[in-house]
Amino acid sequence: MRRPETLLRLVDGWVFAREDPRRLAAVRIGLCGLLALRFAIADYGVVARLPASFFHPVFYMKLFERMPSPEVATVLQICGIVAALLAAAGLALRLSLPLAVVCSLVLNGMLNSAGRVIVGDAVLTLCLLVLLACGTAASEAWSLGEHLRRALQRFRRAPAPGPRIAPSPIRSGERYGWPIRTAMIAIALAYFLAGFQKWRYSGLPWITSDNLRLILYDQAHPSGLALFIADRPLLAHVFAAGSLLLETCFPLVLFLPRLRWLLIPGVVAMHVGIRIALKLDYSAQWLAAVIVFVNWPVAVAWVRHAMARVPMPREAPR
């Protein structure tokens, strides 16, 4: 067999390998919960109140003649929070998840139509698009829907239709695996391409020149951390090299799972550093990476096991 075909088969086998449905459910809970949080803490009114001259629509926002009003933004924000929470709970996923994603696209589109496209939530949105494409597979475990159905049955005192409400054994399947691994590849590509563009447009001078110092100084009010690094050229070169190496090597987490213990905390630390030094919020990106790459059923089982080993506290003597 020729090499490209073999490689393609290997990739296909990896992407479409079987997976525990609870892992996909955990990704659903995490990503939708994060989306609800993003809706709740963002101030879309800032851009909704901008004068018409500041409306510079990008991509699909060109469908809008002007910036949606603050009232529309508030309605979308409330709908988005409710829909995202319902989707996180696994309720009416066919309706709740598309609604949450549409609200997110419009509200993020508003933020991106005010003069600068903000990359912060792009990775989260890409992962949500994958979740959207996998249909109801993401709500087949760890969902409130099944509990609600059982409670309703008990309330009505109707005889339970055996197989429907009986606790189903956890069966792994291909349909639970490809969404997780596609999201993993999307995240890995996001980091790799950010590094690739630096090599493409700047090359080694991105590390060896004063570039990072200039980025850190180029703020109205640089933070103490920004000035601490920018005032020390050698330290700035080390940070520049570290971040470029991290971005370029990030796809290794796909092939070498052990490297996740190093590279995932690495990107979290990089984004926290960027938040403090440049006041740029990439929390949605690193949280999406943590949600997608951590094997939550294993983590939950480990925590349960660890807690079971801890002896119960005795009652204090009186």
Binding site: G109, L129, A190, K198, Y201, S202, D210
Partner: peptide, 30 residues
């Protein structure tokens, strides 16, 4: 989906959320 992510980056099309990932990639000048 994956081809769109790669093509948008290579062609530097910023079709959010398919970003061009052009983050601080150009050298700053003094």
């Amino acid at each position: 989906f994956l081809a769109t992510i790669v093509v948008c980056a290579l062609a530097t099309w910023n079709l959010w959320p398919f970003s061009n990932w052009d983050l601080f990639s150009r050298l700053r000048t003094d």
